[in-house]
Design a binder for these strands. Structure first.
Lengths: 143, 143
DNA sequence: TTAAGTGCAAAATCTTTGCAAATGT
DNA sequence: ACATTTGCAAAGATTTTGCACTTAA
């Protein structure tokens, strides 16, 4: 959905001292062309010819480096989406709303929503949070 | 942490037309005596003599019936906690804050916190939500 | 040329399924 | 006595590990 060029991706990999390999670029391309997070099983299907183990490894480095972030959907399946901004290595800032549609099961990362503050009990120190809502998305609410 | 008697549990099982078996009562007792959600691996350790498959089945019925609810921690591991109130069969209302400590990995269900409202984009209809924060808990914040 | 990344085979885990024996009502 | 629930064995799925071959720099 974003108009990210292949150059953007290559730059991204450079930034994190990762080699620009074919499988990695394809993973980034796949994720960028959707407006929802992509589940690992989905990725596997979309990239039949890439070894499943390779996919695991790619997703792991990407997450460590802060290139993508991981969300678990209602079934506990890992879904991945490209981080929009300010994610550093080993410290994600994906403080947005994750919306999981109970019909199509898509996970939307609603980045532009302004999130309200909330209080924590004494002694708790949060360094990150996400609001996680489930229901029906635009498409599935209709009929 | 709650002072739930064994009678409470038996009543709970009755309510949902489930037989009051030893493994089921023990699962409820284990969960009730902690103030954090319990991970499936933890439960397995605590209940060595109960078959792992039985545990899967117990957790599944309990969740379906709305007796417990499931939260995924930062590692994607399922954690379970007894529902405090108004959970109906197939429709949970666990709209509280889940706090996952990055040090001890405990998941706290902070039920008494008043949660702020938030808006969704046009077309999205939420029927449930939870705020999910990570950081350090009371114990681990100290030193 | 060589360090990093991939693919394949195999191990280790985790989850589900089927069925006979045990248990609660 | 009968329907549920459990335990065990075994199948299926997911995730990790080791190592030789390939690729990007």
């Amino acid at each position: 959905m974003t108009t990210a060029t292949n150059n953007t991706f290559e730059h991204l990999l450079d930034q994190h001292h990762l080699k620009k390999t074919v499988p990695r670029l394809r993973v980034l391309a796949m994720m960028a062309e959707k407006n929802t997070a992509t589940s690992q099983p989905d990725l596997e299907n979309l990239m039949q010819d890439v070894d499943r183990v390779t996919l695991y490894r790619i997703l792991n480095v990407f997450e460590e480096k802060g290139i993508i972030h991981k969300v678990f959907d209602l079934n506990g399946t890992a879904n991945y989406a490209i981080c929009t901004s300010n994610c550093q290595e080993h410290h994600h800032h994906d403080e947005h709303l994750h919306f999981n549609c109970t019909v199509c099961n898509n996970v939307y990362c609603l980045n532009d929503l302004s999130l309200p503050a909330f209080n924590l009990p004494l002694g708790f120190k949060a360094n990150g949070f996400t609001i996680y809502a489930s229901g029906t998305c635009q498409k599935c609410t209709k009929k």
